[in-house]
Design a protein around this nucleic acid. Structure first.
Lengths: 363, 363
DNA sequence: CTGTTAGCGCTTTCAC
DNA sequence: GTGAAAGCGCTAACAG
């Protein structure tokens, strides 16, 4: 057993074709080196290997088509290269758009996404959290439903890397990436105001505890407060309750016309889901924009230009939000311990027909 | 060392709150039983445990908040409870809708989805495949881009569980779940024909190798062949090429009007992405439906009812497709070795204004 | 019924 | 520089 035990013999690579598991041990044997060296090679500790050794390993790995098992790697060191993403509602185009950016960032950094849709349900949120935990994800991207955040708080206490998307959570000091809701809503409202609308209804889903909605309301109120001659109102709707949106809008319109017959009424839709319901409601009521009512919606959607003379929107940089969120998370995973940070990206106004109030327009 | 070594002493559960890792060994120690028994308990081999033992374990697990590590479990037995999903394009609403069903099914069966978006790119497809492989996913849901399928074929040879979504792959005998494209396209075409349209253009993205598109063309041609008095034509478009769709439609329309001045022209859009481009193109050309041109689109989208008098669509049971695909995959994972199977679900026609050709309509 | 003993594939001290 | 050995948390024979 003196010297190196190079036994390049029996090259029985009978599995070469199949995706059959080649293990680090096999590679070591075939290359005539120790598992340790292979491991070092994989870990990028190249300066710890001699040039010939390095080459020997490289070629053997290539020849055998060896791929290290992330599961096994994760088991020891904890670097699973896994990131969990909890999405409040995968049917919401916003979520998917953010997911797109997040997935791209993951791929770029060699991470893989484990996706769970919670369907805005507390229980599923908790279950998903447990599932992701059991895979030792290194961090979490979290678009929470907002209520009952105890499990989230526990993560916070454990100093587990989490980045919140869109919605802040009371009492947790996680980083957050999202839209500058206040600014965007102010801009939106000002656009409507300066377009000549005097009576504006902000239509949102229930505000309770959802910070992004509250932010949008705040911006809305801010902008409205600069114009005492105009009227602003927040209208909460339940979009899963058929007809509720239509009724709400209808009553708002009637009310404003009674109060202020000369006023011009507009709706500011709080997000993409609401936009759709509003558009559907206006259609069912045979109301056209901008003739009968003005409309400006949060979230640019593929079909925004298509309806009527086009729906004006506030576009969110969704891809960037997702991408930035992953990068923030990676920073935390890699040990950054700076205080909580919020990254708020700007929205962009895309004016279209729905908010264009022709001065000479006849009712 | 005689008898049981019950040392329920030092209950130092100082981590109770944090998500800190409790291991099977700790549980075993605290419960005063062997790891094996715990493992059996976890594995559901309850009949192999005595009632008191069972209870002892149950309570200890609960008290410690123990959660087994899936990574470790997977390392040994291979049951990682992980399913990989490769999506050709996450921006495609079809993909997301299917993902929705797939994720739900996974959750229901205790599996977790690892999601990779390949962006219709061969290279990323290969990389993602490798990544998923390195996590020992038990099976794959695959919505491939279609070209260069060698890596897929290798999986086939290795008898790895794969279920294809929507698109068949030449030379692989994987199960497939998708739409009955031929039937749906036939139904669509017949609807247009019976509505009085005589000149129909099927607008699709490049057919080359994409079985679902070919299937739709086949159904289209079948239906057209029953009406020698009518004219059908397949128009391939590149939707990422600005203006191409508009030009194609415009030329088709002009051509048909020259050939057949009395004919009624309609477009059958091959999928949701195409639909959007068509709608945009018609708008830019100031063409209205059904007055100027008929329109029927594959894929029901949230905004289908909103544009003009509503766009008629062929709805796919996307959620069911995703759900069924996972169940098919699970069957394979659990050892089913029946010959290749295709599950083709039916589409549903949703007629709206865009295909309603009023008999007394004035051009 | 229950526990002991080996590993799964990889990383990581700690020697040489 | 390089390797042997000891686990990571769990499951799976194999004994009693």
């Amino acid at each position: 057993m003196a010297g190196r035990v190079r036994q390049k013999s029996n090259m029985q690579h009978m599995r070469s074709a199949g995706a059959g598991k080649v293990t680090i041990a096999q590679v070591a044997r075939e290359a005539g080196v120790s598992k340790t060296s292979i491991s070092r090679y994989l870990g990028g500790e190249l300066d710890a290997l001699s040039a010939p050794l390095r080459e020997q390993i490289r070629s053997t790995i290539a020849r055998l088509g060896y791929q290290p098992s992330q599961m096994a790697r994760g088991l020891k060191g904890g670097r699973t290269k896994l990131i969990g993403m909890l999405v409040a509602d995968i049917l919401n185009p916003y979520s998917v758009a953010v997911l797109h950016g997040a997935e791209a960032a993951c791929q770029e950094h060699g991470y893989t996404l484990m996706l769970c849709n919670t369907g805005n349900d507390e229980k599923r949120e908790k279950q998903s959290l447990a599932a992701l935990h059991s895979y030792s994800v290194e961090g979490l991207l979290f678009n929470t439903q907002g209520r009952n955040v105890t499990p989230l708080k526990e993560l916070g206490q454990a100093a587990f890397p989490v980045v919140l998307l869109d919605r802040r959570v009371e009492g947790c000091d996680f980083d957050l990436v999202g839209l500058d809701n206040v600014g965007a809503a102010r801009m939106a409202t000002e656009h409507l105001l300066s377009s000549g609308y005097s009576d504006i209804g902000l239509v949102v889903q229930p505000l309770q505890g959802v910070s992004s909605r509250q932010g949008r309301q705040a911006g809305f109120l801010q902008a409205m407060s600069t114009r005492p001659d105009c009227h602003g109102e927040t209208l909460e709707v339940h979009i899963d309750q058929p007809g509720h949106v239509a009724t709400t809008v209808h009553e708002f319109l009637k009310r404003r016309r009674n109060q202020n017959g000369d006023g011009r009424v507009a709706i500011l839709a709080g997000n993409g889901m609401v936009s759709l319901q509003i558009a559907l409601a206006l259609q069912s009521m045979k109301l056209r924009f901008p003739e009968d009512i003005g409309l400006l919606c949060f979230d640019e959607l593929s079909w925004s230009p298509l309806v009527g003379s086009g729906i004006s929107t506030i576009e969110q940089p969704t891809y960037d939000i997702g991408f930035a969120a992953i990068e923030r998370l990676l920073a935390r995973i890699n040990g950054e311990s700076a205080p909580r940070r919020e990254i708020l990206l700007d929205g962009r106004l895309i004016p279209r027909g729905s908010s264009k109030l022709a001065q000479d327009m006849v009712l």
